[in-house]
Amino acid sequence: MTRLVLASASPARLGVLRTAGIDPVVRVSGVDEDAVAAALPAGTSPEGIVVALARAKALDVAATIPEFADDCVIVGCDSMLLVDGQLQGKPHTPEVARARWKGMAGRSADLLTGHCVLRLRDGEIVGEAAECSGTTVHFAEPAPDELDAYIATGEPLQVAGAFTLDGLGGWFVDRIDGDPSSVIGIGLPLLRGLLEDVGVGVTQLWRDARA
């Protein structure tokens, strides 16, 4: 029975998959994202960076899951917001989150999510597919007290671009152009195609199909 292993600690990604009928095994990678990005060749595109990070996470987890390695697919993802040509990850501090919102409020930016799928059989990687999805996010202009309240919740500190679409941050997104699941962190249309590329039909992974 093919199992899907999610190489991510993101509750949002896990929630998207569960809502879409998949109960993944969760394994969190120990990848140093800054080190991976720093090791990439100069001039690597923003899309190439997020795909490289997603691949590094998937490969890291591939070495740590012997109990599923007989037949599984590992999915790694990485999301960043592209603003004025600069990639932005998690802000981590209120000060950084506030500065980022000052720069993106009332504007548009591209949320890039790199995806990497590895197919494992008998402990060996027998298939790999990777790609980036991009979605344009049009941000509202929260009032100062609204932004203060949002930052005080802590939510924007640990998410790419300092916002969520499926949480409190959704109040401050006017609209998006593209795949909403990709903005949440894992694009279902793209993932379905990548799974097909490594020989796995998405319906094989639905929980009802295993019942």
Rank of each mutant, 00 (worst) to 15 (best):
W171I: 06
R55G: 04
A35T: 01
A162N: 04
A149D: 13
R207K: 12
R192K: 11
L194R: 02
V61P: 06
I151T: 04
K90V: 14
P189N: 05
F139H: 02
H92W: 14
D177A: 07
I74L: 13
S182R: 01
T113I: 14
I49L: 04
K90N: 15
D71P: 05
S10G: 09
A54D: 04
P91Q: 11
H138K: 06
T2R: 05
S182A: 12
C77N: 14
L82Q: 07
R192Q: 13
G114N: 12
I49G: 00
G30S: 08
G185A: 11
V183R: 00
L82C: 10
C77H: 11
L14W: 06
P41L: 03
A105Q: 15
G193R: 14
G154I: 05
K102C: 12
A35L: 00
E95W: 11
D145F: 07
Q204T: 14
E33V: 01
Q88G: 08
V31A: 04
L118M: 11
A42D: 08
Q158E: 11
I74V: 15
M104F: 13
G161T: 01
E124P: 12
P142Y: 03
G89K: 03
D70Q: 11
T19Y: 02
D34N: 02
K102G: 14
D197G: 07
P41T: 07
L17I: 03
A69V: 10
V126N: 06
V183L: 11
G199Q: 04
G170M: 09
T164N: 04
V126G: 09
K90L: 12
P91W: 05
S108H: 10
S8E: 10
S182W: 00
